[in-house]
């Protein structure tokens, strides 16, 4: 398909979807969202882009091989679990860091759970894209 309107629209939409996916990823700990849904939304962005501009361009925009992204994501998720060893806890024990915590507020909480979620995000993104790209290319 070679429609200028579609390509221009798809570019805009892909960016919006990627930003929204990052928002979904970050709000996931206490509200609906998280790595899985974030990864799906990000994948949608790239899929829209691939439909409009072709998978070759989409692969270029992704920069890395989707399979490798999924592999790296799995590694990051695993790392989030293994991190617990530095604190002497059991595998996958969540570790928390409260930046600027005072008596009344907890400040900015950062956790190994977020790292795990980023891993999931990448796994979903990579897996969905490697499936859709190969399907798209097979057609």
């Amino acid at each position: 398909m070679n429609s200028v309107i579609l390509i221009a629209g798809a570019r805009l939409q892909a960016v919006l979807l990627l930003v929204f996916s990052a928002y979904m990823l970050l709000r996931g700990h206490n509200a609906p969202g998280g790595g899985f849904i974030g990864g799906l939304i990000a994948a949608t962005g790239f899929v829209v882009y691939a439909i409009a501009c072709g998978t070759q361009d989409a692969r270029k925009a992704l920069r890395f091989d989707p399979g490798s992204i999924a592999g790296a994501g799995l590694g990051i998720a695993l790392f989030a679990g293994v991190m617990a060893v530095f604190w002497g806890d059991a595998f996958f024990t969540g570790q928390w860091l409260f930046i600027g915590a005072t008596e009344d507020s907890k400040g900015l909480p950062l956790s190994s759970v977020l790292i795990f979620d980023i891993g999931v995000y990448l796994v979903v993104l990579g897996a969905v894209l490697s499936i859709t790209f190969s399907l798209e290319e097979a057609v």
Partner: peptide, 12 residues
């Protein structure tokens, strides 16, 4: 953990 790490490394 070891086979998981090996799987990821081998895949990359």
């Amino acid at each position: 953990i070891i086979p998981f790490i090996a799987a990821i490394t081998a895949f990359l």
